[in-house]
Simulated assay, not measured.
Amino acid sequence: MAMAEKYIVLPFKRVRGGLAPGEMRAASTAAGAEKVAAAMAPRHIGVAAYAVQVDMESGDMSSPRLLVQFGQIGDLAA
């Protein structure tokens, strides 16, 4: 099982009963993910950039680590 650290940006939108993640965007570096999140922030209720561990064989993501957040974000574990 080969693991690699990847960087993703998730915008959040308001839905009945709370917040839901929008379309995930990938970034090549942690700094890049933070810049993308900052650029998206004015257009969303919340945006978060994460570093995640990805199993390169299955594509499964785990161990999200919050890099930066703007506004309100939802719980990824929910």
Rank of each mutant, 00 (worst) to 15 (best):
F70E: 01
G32M: 03
V52L: 10
P64M: 04
A39G: 09
Q72P: 00
A41Q: 06
F70G: 03
A48D: 02
A37Y: 00
L19N: 05
M56V: 15
S63N: 15
M61C: 07
G18C: 07
A27S: 11
V9T: 04
V68A: 12
D75C: 09
A48S: 10
A27D: 02
H44N: 15
R43K: 14
F70D: 06
Q53W: 06
L76N: 04
E57D: 14
D75R: 11
F12M: 04
G71M: 05
I45W: 02
A39F: 04
R14Y: 04
G59Y: 06
E23L: 11
I73V: 15
R65F: 06
M61V: 12
E34R: 14
I45F: 05
R25I: 10
G46I: 07
F70V: 08
Q69S: 14
Q72E: 15
A33I: 08
A26K: 11
R65S: 11
G46S: 10
Q69K: 15
F70S: 07
E5C: 05
G46Y: 02
M3S: 09
G71H: 03
A20G: 05
L19V: 12
L76R: 05
M40E: 07
R16W: 08
G71C: 08
S58I: 10
K35Y: 00
V15D: 01
R65L: 10
A51L: 05
D55G: 06
A30N: 02
Q72T: 12
A39R: 14
R65K: 15
D55I: 10
V52I: 15
G71K: 04
G59F: 02
A30V: 09
V54Q: 09
A77E: 11
G18A: 07
